[in-house]
Simulated scan of single mutants.
Amino acid sequence: MPDSAPAYLIGHITIKDEAKWARYRAGVPATLEPWGGELVFRGRRAAVLAGHHDATDTVVLRFPDLASLQGWFNSSAYQALIPVREQAADVVLVAYES
């Protein structure tokens, strides 16, 4: 049995500027690799079946463990993308342990 469980990051996204969002998205994959992060899912909301959910898009990333997820988020490579992200979209990022 592994010593640590995978961790997931879920991003709830409402895009404000498609061109800047494309630039941000293009930069993210290289920041994931050193931390063992991988894209699990990216999609646009089809319907809200229960409750209230304003975000139009969602992304799910998987990391080997919570320390890797936090290391990625705090890395200088990812931090450099945050100003573009903030101009491009309203984003809520939530980390989960499994």
Rank of each mutant, 00 (worst) to 15 (best):
P2D: 08
P2E: 11
D3Q: 14
D3W: 07
S4D: 14
A5P: 03
A5T: 14
P6V: 02
P6C: 13
A7K: 14
A7G: 12
Y8E: 06
Y8H: 15
Y8L: 09
L9G: 04
L9D: 01
L9H: 09
L9Q: 14
L9I: 14
I10H: 06
I13Y: 01
I13D: 01
I13M: 01
I15W: 12
I15S: 06
K16Q: 11
E18A: 15
E18P: 01
A19S: 10
A19V: 01
A19R: 04
K20F: 12
W21D: 07
A22D: 08
R23E: 15
Y24C: 02
R25P: 00
R25Q: 10
A26L: 07
A26Q: 13
A26C: 08
G27D: 02
G27Q: 03
V28M: 12
P29A: 13
P29N: 12
P29C: 11
P29L: 12
T31W: 12
L32M: 08
L32S: 01
E33G: 05
E33T: 15
E33H: 14
E33N: 09
W35S: 02
G36A: 05
G36L: 04
G36C: 06
G37V: 03
G37A: 06
E38Y: 06
E38H: 11
L39H: 10
L39D: 10
L39R: 10
V40S: 07
G43D: 11
R44F: 05
R44Y: 07
R45P: 02
R45K: 15
A47P: 04
V48S: 12
V48W: 08
L49E: 12
A50E: 14
A50K: 14
A50C: 13
G51F: 06
H52V: 13
H52I: 15
H53P: 00
H53R: 14
H53A: 14
H53N: 13
D54K: 13
D54S: 12
A55V: 03
D57R: 02
T58L: 07
V60R: 00
V60W: 00
L61A: 01
L61Q: 01
L61E: 01
R62G: 02
R62W: 12
F63A: 01
P64K: 04
P64S: 11
P64Q: 03
P64C: 03
L66A: 12
L66R: 15
S68I: 02
S68V: 01
L69F: 13
L69V: 00
L69E: 00
Q70K: 14
F73R: 08
N74S: 11
N74L: 10
S75D: 05
S76L: 11
S76Q: 10
S76F: 06
A77C: 06
A77H: 05
Y78G: 03
Y78K: 01
Q79A: 08
A80S: 11
A80D: 15
L81D: 09
L81H: 08
L81E: 11
I82R: 10
I82P: 12
P83C: 04
V84Q: 09
R85H: 06
E86F: 03
Q87C: 05
Q87T: 07
A88F: 05
A88P: 03
A88S: 05
A89R: 02
A89V: 00
A89E: 06
D90A: 06
D90E: 15
D90M: 04
D90R: 00
D90F: 07
V92I: 08
V92Y: 08
L93W: 04
V94D: 05
V94G: 04
V94F: 04
A95M: 05
A95D: 00
Y96M: 03
E97H: 12
E97K: 13
